[in-house]
């Protein structure tokens, strides 16, 4: 079983890699060293990691979203020192190759979120909070939270990261005033969510496969 898994992963790697390599030169060796570097923090299968700071899941994430965010870090539209350092020297071809690659990982969610919040979170995700004018998350992130293009996958995203992200949205994203980006779409949503609603919806999505 492990062999089959390993083989199919190898094939996926090869496909992702050869399509990138055709565009221009990212050597296999450089690509593998770089993806290993991402995995040192984001986990061997991109499942995310609870470090001193939460390190998000990248597995199964939309390629467009990943590329967008890597550019946002480099341009300081999204503030994060760690990821600025990681991303500032990546070529566009390398970014594409890495983003394509994580799309194909499919590990189990890390888990660990408070289970008693899941039911309330499901309700918010599917129906929104009409009394506070909050649109259902499913409307943009998809009914199974797997996202599409620049709408990120939320399924399996680690709990502390989602809580932190929704709580700090306005301080971390869209940080260049004259240069609005896709993060503006989430602003009205996060503006109206309470702390306990954030925790509930974060717990719910963290368990989705």
């Amino acid at each position: 079983m492990n062999l089959i898994k390993a083989t199919s992963r190898l094939v996926i790697l090869t496909i992702a890699f050869s399509s990138a390599a055709r565009a221009d030169a990212v050597s296999k060796q450089n690509f593998e060293a770089k993806i290993g570097y991402c995995q040192d923090c984001h986990g061997p299968s991109g499942q995310g990691y609870r470090g001193f700071y939460p390190i998000p899941r990248l597995a199964g994430q939309q390629t467009e979203y990943l590329e967008n965010q890597l550019r946002a870090f480099v341009e300081h539209r999204r503030t994060n020192n760690i990821m600025f350092n990681v991303a500032h020297n990546l070529s566009p071809t390398m970014i594409r190759a890495l983003a394509t690659n994580f799309r194909h990982f499919n590990p189990r969610p890390l888990g660990g979120a408070p289970k008693n919040l899941v039911a309330a979170g499901k309700k918010i995700f599917e129906d929104g909070v009409p009394s506070a004018n909050i649109v259902a998350c499913a409307a943009c992130h998809g009914p199974d939270a797997t996202g599409k293009d620049e709408f990120p996958r939320l399924a399996g995203q680690i709990y502390p990261y989602v809580v932190k992200t929704l709580s700090n949205w306005g301080k971390e994203r869209g940080q260049i005033p004259g240069k609005p980006d896709t993060s503006a779409v989430m602003q009205p949503v996060v503006h109206s969510l309470t702390k306990s609603q954030i925790e509930a919806v974060a717990a719910y999505v963290s368990y989705l496969r």
């Binding site: 290993g36 040192d40 923090c41 760690i82």
Partner: peptide, 15 residues
């Protein structure tokens, strides 16, 4: 800060 050029992760993120 880590060493992005030699693919060494910044220790601070975890420790």
């Amino acid at each position: 800060l880590g060493m992005p050029d030699s693919n060494t992760a910044a220790c601070v993120v975890c420790h």
